[in-house]
């Protein structure tokens, strides 16, 4: 495993760790202040989608 491969694994691992952290946040905390509780207002899904895109880019390049 060369240096770049190690770096790639560390970067992707960092994103995945963050995703895990996001998922342990309770929905009530995320929705605090929201005018309603519609699914799209759950910011955890926003975060997970963005993280997934970044994981792909860092794995690819």
């Amino acid at each position: 495993m060369n240096e770049v491969s190690i770096a790639r694994c560390l970067f992707v691992g960092f994103f995945l760790l963050l995703a895990a952290g996001v998922m342990i946040l309770p929905r009530a905390y995320i929705l605090r202040g929201a005018p309603d509780t519609a699914l799209w207002r759950d910011l955890r899904w926003w975060a997970l989608l963005l993280l997934a895109v970044h994981v792909y880019v860092y794995w690819r390049f």
């Binding site: 995320i30 929705l31 605090r32 202040g33 929201a34 005018p35 207002r41 910011l43 926003w46």
Partner: peptide, 8 residues
């Protein structure tokens, strides 16, 4: 305007 808007 509210806490959710700040986060979102």
């Amino acid at each position: 305007r509210d806490e959710w808007s700040a986060k979102a």
